[in-house]
């Protein structure tokens, strides 16, 4: 889909802001993280379907096989459950696999190994084994991706004990969270969003980690708290930008990690503003939006000046056609309307 790449590029470069320091693209930042990890630790290896093909996971794994050799960077058979179990077993025996998927939809084939095995082994054997496994995938959207190539399944996994789930949204975080995930001794799932992957940003050289389990303020304001991750938060932040002329200001809380969830930053912000808009790239019910809303409702209901509002996907599979898609995905206008409704409530 070369034209889809062009579309994403046009979306992301239109509002490219100058930044201080060295600038890298999102995929370059991820590529650098993997390069550094492979160079640092002989136990790290990277695998996935098409990892060394011309598109090389959107460029994330470009050149790694040439630089580090086939035993450490290799393409795989189409065996998602088997390979996830193999990665789990390899991790249990001292290696640090990074298993990459073009889309999270394919992780659904591997739920047995992710949920029953990788997530539970450390607890189930009373801490005798650890599973330093990274599973990386990029959420797709648009151009007919449809119900089976666009799913954002973080909400499905959020209630599974033993997993860590991160969703970066800047090149800086993408690199720092990838390095933190590889260094972590637990299974970590990284969900990227394809629509963020053409952005540029300041990325320091060398190894650094963004702490897993810590959110960050992207903006500080007083009227409401916008809480979420990834592309959904970026969209909400754009909406907020368009409302600034109306004198509206908000805390924009990028959770960065969904599990373990940073309760402190959520509650700190909502206690201050009294209004919460929670956004996610996944389905609104039963997932990230629902959990964050519950954390607020359980811990600081007395701070709320208005009912909590959430913007996620409707309780429907993704339609493939672009006309239906426009109605399916929240837009900047959806986000703006949600912000205004929350302030008027």
């Amino acid at each position: 889909m070369p034209w889809s790449d062009a579309f994403i590029a046009s979306q992301q470069t239109a509002d490219r802001q100058p930044v201080a320091g060295r600038e890298l693209s999102y995929t370059e930042a991820l590529n650098e993280a993997l390069t550094l990890a492979l160079a640092l630790d002989p136990n790290v290896f990277v695998l996935g379907q098409g990892i060394d093909d011309p598109s090389s996971m959107f460029g994330v794994t470009k050149g790694l096989a040439e630089q580090f050799g086939a035993p450490r960077v290799f393409d795989t058979p189409l065996s998602e459950e088997g390979l996830t179990g193999i990665c789990t077993g390899a991790a249990m025996h001292g290696l640090r696999p990074v298993y990459c998927h073009n889309r999270p939809d394919f992780l659904l084939l591997a739920f047995n190994q992710i949920v029953n095995h990788a997530a539970k082994t450390h607890y189930m054997d009373n801490g005798q084994t650890h599973v330093p496994l990274v599973i990386w995938s990029a959420i797709g959207r648009g151009w007919g991706s449809g119900a089976q190539h666009s799913q954002a399944i973080q909400g499905l996994l959020m209630s599974v004990p033993g997993l860590k789930i991160v969703m970066p949204s800047t090149p800086y975080d993408a690199k720092g969270l990838m390095l933190a995930a590889i260094a972590d001794n637990n299974p970590v799932l990284i969900f990227e969003h394809r629509w963020l992957m053409k952005q540029y940003g300041a990325v320091p050289e060398g190894i650094y980690e963004v702490p897993i389990g810590k959110g960050v303020y992207r903006e500080r304001g007083s009227d409401l708290s916008i809480i979420g991750t990834s592309h959904a938060l970026a969209l909400a932040q754009q909406a907020l930008g368009s409302l600034k002329t109306q004198g509206i200001s908000a805390d924009v809380v990028d959770l960065r990690t969904l599990k373990p969830l940073d309760h402190q930053i959520i509650l700190e912000s909502v206690k201050k503003t009294g209004r919460a808009l929670i956004v996610d790239t996944g389905w609104a019910i039963g997932g990230v939006c629902a959990e964050v809303a519950c954390v607020i409702a359980e811990n600081c209901p007395q701070s709320l000046k208005a009912p909590i509002k959430r913007v996620g996907l409707p309780d429907l599979p993704t339609p493939a056609g672009d006309t239906l898609e426009q109605y399916y995905y929240p837009s900047q206008q959806t986000m703006s309307a949600a912000i205004l409704e929350l302030l008027e409530a």
Binding site: N43, F45, P71, R72, E81, G82, L83, T84, G85, I86, C87, T88, G89, A90, A91, M92, H93, G94, L95, N112, Q113, N116, H117, T121, D125, Q128, T129
Partner: peptide
């Protein structure tokens, strides 16, 4: 009992088969 190489098991039928295969991959890579 890891002290004697009894590394583990799965109560999901066939669940330990890929894991043991991953252990073999680790042995080979190291």
């Amino acid at each position: 009992d890891k002290s004697v190489g009894m590394a583990g098991s799965s109560a999901i039928v066939a669940g330990a088969v890929p894991i043991a295969t991953g252990a073999a991959l680790s042995i080979q890579m190291k």
